[in-house]
Simulated scan of single mutants.
Amino acid sequence: MTMKRNPKSVLAIAFKYYYQDPRIQRQLKALVQDGYVVDFICPHDEHVVYPNIKNLHFIKINVKKKRASKLRYMFEYLSFFTLTTLKCIILDFKKKYGLIQIFVMPELLAFCVAIPRLFGVRVLMDWEDPAYEVYLSKFQNKKSLFSFFLQVIERYAIKMVDEIITPNEGFVRAFVARGCPREKLNIITNSPESDIFDPQKVNVFKSQNGQYTILYTGTITKRQGLDIAFRALRNLKDKSNRFRMVVVGDGEFWPEAQRVALDLDVYDHVNYLGRVPLETIPKLILESDVGLIPNRNEPFTRINFPTRILEHAAMRVPIAAPELPGILDYVDDSSVCLFEPENAEAMANAIFELSRNPVKQQQLTENAYKIYQQMTWERMKEEYLQIVKNVIAGK
């Protein structure tokens, strides 16, 4: 069964807050800039003022994200799924979308479009985070009936959609290994917007007080390893009193990481800013001497390529990161200051040696910038919009 559809009308669905996900922001803005009218179904946050963007309409589902336990996860997902499925059917019947785009995880969202799919709507899935690896990382690599359930949902979600985009090669390998056809997958890298991440557009005064500033940005969960970074800071403090760390972001693991910093007597060397607007990040990067990704060696982090690497590359500031496969797919020790994962001493030594070698800092930033130029958002945007057009046209 099919119906006549509007090729410039798009319904987007995500169980994520718009303001917390730059990837969603980039893609939805690209759509409206290219002449599409977009309805976006997302969780409601009463504490946030949503942006007023022409032809982008927010449809808020009243489900709060707390994520305290497995049962809470399931309750949130199922509640959002049920309400979104009903909303999706009603909206598609009224507006006859040319495309429905789903941002996952959870992969369960792919089933929200089952009824509209019967009536001919085309479906694009942005597989930004694989729920299976995220689950294993969050719950200490414990395979269970629930993890098996996630894999079953994943297999059927792949069949429910016409095309898939995903951020990096590590994710592609994982999906193909679990049965996803390679020809269905397209890589749209998590590249920062050059309008925001441009050192020429940021006015900053960098203090010459001799301090060496390490910058951490991002969500604070256990797998991000901020507690390991604080142990490295303790090691650095023993070498020199000039090292400082700026922490930007929030998350469930912050109280525990904070306790580690207090116990190690390094909290006076930490400046915790909490969550800040995306537009503030470039200035913070330029004010720092090195960025830091202290990720643990876990199922998700092993296949992920953090956006922060490209953000620092765009701003010409070096970054230190663990030697994990997803990172090594794109960079090596000529472009990033690498260290052994989960090794606070190795992390500290790498940063300490970098702090004493301005020539190496310059080499890293130059080489990282060359890599960034191959995957700017301008390039990714063109590829993304072409994929959208092809999916709508049934190519």
Rank of each mutant, 00 (worst) to 15 (best):
N6T: 06
P7G: 15
K8Q: 02
I13L: 00
I13P: 00
Y18F: 10
R23F: 06
I24Q: 00
L31P: 12
V38P: 06
H44T: 08
V48L: 12
F58G: 01
K66G: 14
Y73A: 07
L78W: 03
I89F: 14
L91I: 02
F93S: 15
Y97E: 14
G98Y: 09
G98R: 03
M105L: 02
E107L: 06
L108S: 01
L118D: 04
D129N: 13
Y135S: 03
K138G: 11
N141W: 09
K142A: 15
F148C: 14
V152Q: 08
E154H: 11
N168M: 11
R173L: 13
I188M: 03
K206Q: 10
Q208E: 14
Y216R: 03
K222W: 00
K237G: 14
V246A: 06
E252Q: 02
N271V: 15
L273E: 11
E279I: 11
T280G: 07
L284P: 05
V290M: 05
P294A: 10
R296D: 05
S335I: 05
V336I: 13
E340W: 04
P341Q: 08
A348F: 02
E353Q: 15
R356C: 12
K360R: 14
Q361V: 03
Q362C: 13
L364W: 12
Y369K: 08
Q373S: 08
R379Q: 13
L385P: 03
N390R: 15
N390E: 14
N390M: 12
